[in-house]
């Protein structure tokens, strides 16, 4: 039972961490290597909020706000001229990530921060005490996935985003403001990444480079998922399960690279990954 819960909550965590990168890659077709920095910024939002005496829960909307605003500035100032130069976009966002890490280091130092957790303690699941926070992550991931589907299927922004994904020239010919769709998408992706950073804080050390350890896994999961939310959820579940099993039965060190390795193998054998076709 504990193993099943570990698999489900690990998959949820992977989904939460990958979601922001997925949104940006799905619509804009660029890999935002500043994703790690957004995760870190989100975590430090919790640090700042709690140092100011605010409830750690308030850091959730604060991180969304900070992430969204920084995302807007980044899209307009850095990413917008590079949509047709995807390699340059990767380098530029990587560089931005490095700068952000240095700014955080200068501001907060290299020391590990320990902000209070959103939820502490355990709950009984069929007689087994299990971390309340990990179960909370499971609920958060399900809400996030449902919100994705709802926005994509039921809102005008979602419809416009689908049109841009499928055929940007036609979308533009129909009068859709594709620049605005890109800006809003980048803001959303950045906001979700910052939110993920807040959610990571009880599970991960908060230091200036904390996001980097999550970046490769998130990147590989997005690569095997394409533009499908279902594919991302499936990838997180399958590879999250593999990570838990390898960590439990073989070695936690090997477990930490399982997701990246399996994604690479999958891309070699089936380049479309979990995406349809």
């Amino acid at each position: 039972m504990a193993l099943l819960l570990d698999i489900a909550t690990t998959a949820a965590l992977l989904f939460i961490v990958s979601a922001g990168l997925f949104v940006i890659f799905g619509v804009l077709k660029i890999i935002n290597f500043a994703h790690a920095a957004w995760l870190t910024i989100g975590a430090y939002t919790t640090v700042v909020a709690t140092k100011m005496g605010l409830s750690p829960w308030l850091s959730l909307p604060l991180a969304v706000l900070v992430g969204g605003l920084l995302g807007a500035v980044t899209e307009i100032a850095i990413v917008r001229p590079l949509y047709r130069r995807s390699l340059d976009a990767i380098l530029a966002t990587w560089g931005l990530g490095v700068v952000i890490v240095q700014v955080i280091t200068l501001t907060f130092g290299r020391d590990m921060q320990m902000p209070p957790a959103l939820i502490t303690g355990t709950v009984d699941v069929l007689g087994l005490p299990y971390s309340s926070y990990r179960l909370f992550l499971l609920v958060a991931a399900v809400i996030m996935a449902l919100a994705f589907v709802l926005v994509l299927e039921r809102t005008r922004l979602g419809l416009n985003a689908q049109a841009v994904i499928m055929n940007e020239t036609l979308a533009r010919a129909l009068g859709i403001n594709t620049s605005r769709v890109r800006l809003v998408t980048f803001m959303l992706g950045s906001a979700i990444a910052a939110l993920a950073g807040v959610l990571l804080t009880p599970l991960s050390s908060v230091d200036p480079t904390m996001g980097i350890s999550w970046l490769i896994g998130a990147f590989m999961l997005v690569m095997v998922s394409g533009t499908s939310v279902t594919a991302l959820a499936l990838a997180c579940l399958c590879f999250g399960a593999a990570q838990v099993l390898v960590s439990t039965w073989i070695s936690p060190i090997l477990g930490s690279v399982t997701v990246a390795v399996l994604c690479a193998v999958m891309l070699r054998l089936h380049p479309k990954g979990f995406a349809r076709g």
């Binding site: 419809l159 499928m166 055929n167 036609l170 859709i176």
Partner: peptide
């Protein structure tokens, strides 16, 4: 009414119309 790739093939008729 364009000639090249003029429809969103994976969207419904309703959504194709809505996008105009």
């Amino acid at each position: 009414a364009p000639q090249e790739l003029p429809l969103f093939q994976d969207l419904s008729i309703r959504d194709n119309l809505r996008l105009a």
